[in-house]
């Protein structure tokens, strides 16, 4: 396992090329092209702003204004997370030709999926930044230094899960349908459209065992809430856990690797 893990470094150029290909191909043929990566989150933010200031103004405490911005802090990384998992569950089957006919390192495919979605996440960040500035939220520059750490933890966690899911879906095709529903459930079980404080007290324990809670909370603390960043411990603990998830995911992937060419 570790020997193939070491090889992963050699595929950097390949991974990079494929990420660029993915991004180029996604908007090829559309008029606005790359700008959709900006417009999509911007439009989403407008919709949330409308809904939570005009339609449901009392859905949240006054201290949480602007609520749309709060939600946006969670939805943007969540979209990265869920799209990565959904797409990677299908990626080995979609790339079946490569695996069956070319000597191709299969783990590159889920990794590329996660990275391509990360680039989309990054493209959404300027929109987020624009709104943070517009609402004149106080942002501590020192707190912002945590942001790369949070992104890194999410990257490791997503990649581990993506490897695991992509390998298993080859054997269990219905996993990707199951996954869609599971992710919807997970979305609502994570404090994204509500804050941890808004959840009933007896739910706190459940929220705490959800790894995404701590990721989302970290984003929200850095980008939305006032005051010092107080979630380091949870975040670092999650970081260690993510490395474990990644290794486990890679282990499963490596074990099932030989079956891909035959089963895809």
């Amino acid at each position: 396992m570790f020997s193939s893990l070491a090889k992963l470094g050699r595929y950097r150029a390949l991974i990079l090329t494929l990420v660029v290909r993915d991004l180029k191909a996604r908007y090829r043929g559309s008029v606005l092209g790359f700008f959709w990566s900006f417009f999509n989150p911007a439009l989403l933010l407008f919709i949330y702003t409308f809904v939570f200031t005009k339609v449901l103004p009392s859905s949240h405490p006054a201290s949480m204004e602007p609520f749309a911005l709060f939600m946006f802090c969670g939805i943007l990384p969540w979209t990265w997370f869920s799209a990565s998992l959904l797409e990677s569950s299908n990626t080995l089957i979609a790339g079946g030709n490569l695996i069956k006919k070319v000597l191709f390192p299969a783990e590159v495919l889920p990794i590329v999926t996660v990275l391509a979605n990360m680039v989309h996440f990054f493209l959404g960040l300027p929109i987020l930044a624009a709104f943070v500035l517009y609402y004149q939220r106080p942002i501590d520059p020192l707190e912002l230094l945590w942001l790369p750490v949070i992104v890194l933890v999410q990257l490791i966690l997503s990649t581990g899960l993506a490897l695991f899911l992509s390998a298993l879906t080859v054997h269990f095709r219905d996993l990707k349908d199951l996954l869609g529903n599971l992710l919807t459930l997970w979305f609502f079980a994570t404090p994204i459209i509500y804050s941890v404080e808004m959840a009933p007290p007896d739910m706190q324990w459940w929220l705490n065992i959800n790894p995404m809670t701590h990721l989302m909370r970290s984003y929200q603390e850095v980008l939305f809430f006032d005051g010092p960043f107080g979630h380091q411990r949870w975040l670092l603990g999650l970081g260690v856990g993510s490395v474990a998830v990644f290794l486990a995911g890679y282990f499963v992937f490596d074990r099932l690797r030989d079956s891909f060419a035959e089963e895809v």
Binding site: R21, K24, A25, R28, G29, K100, K101, V102, L103, F104
Partner: peptide
């Protein structure tokens, strides 16, 4: 390996 030609081509680009 010339097993399948153009196996990795992406149609859109």
């Amino acid at each position: 390996a010339l097993i399948e030609l153009g196996a990795g081509f992406h149609p859109e680009i």
